[in-house]
């Protein structure tokens, strides 16, 4: 079955330089540095990446960081809690706009 997303495409991510090597090199260099141990550990960054992957709903990133967080020793329970953080922020971002809705409704109505 043909689909827009093919899991095998993730393996070819490194080949995007074919259509523009310089920026690809800069991106991958930057990416590699971002995920190094620093003020945050590589382990902590992996869990953040999993949460962000759900926020941006990137199936490649979800596969990659599910493996990576499990490899780094996180439990399934911790992975799910990270996704609930995503959900809380995404849901909260919608819900906080209801303040505007309420203000407008109160202004319009008697």
């Amino acid at each position: 079955m043909e689909t827009y997303y093919d899991p095998k495409d993730l393996k070819n991510f490194g080949k995007i330089g074919e259509f523009g090597q310089e920026l690809a090199d800069k991106f991958f260099d930057y990416y590699g540095n971002v995920f190094k141990d620093s003020a945050l550990t590589a382990r902590e960054k992996s869990l953040i990446a999993l949460a962000v992957a759900h926020a941006v709903q990137c199936p490649y990133c979800i596969d990659a960081y599910t493996s990576d967080t499990l490899e780094k020793g996180y439990t399934e329970e911790q992975l799910m809690e990270a996704v609930h953080v995503t959900t809380a922020i995404r849901g909260g971002a919608s819900l906080v706009h209801s303040v505007q809705m309420m203000k407008q409704a109160k202004k319009l109505m008697m």
Binding site: T41, A42, R43, S67, D68, L70, E71, K72, G73
Partner: peptide, 18 residues
């Protein structure tokens, strides 16, 4: 040993967590 079809991660990091 990983409990699944995954590779082990950085040994020092896992040791610290354990």
């Amino acid at each position: 040993n990983p409990t699944g079809a995954i590779l082990p991660s950085d040994q020092k990091g896992l040791e610290a967590e354990f």
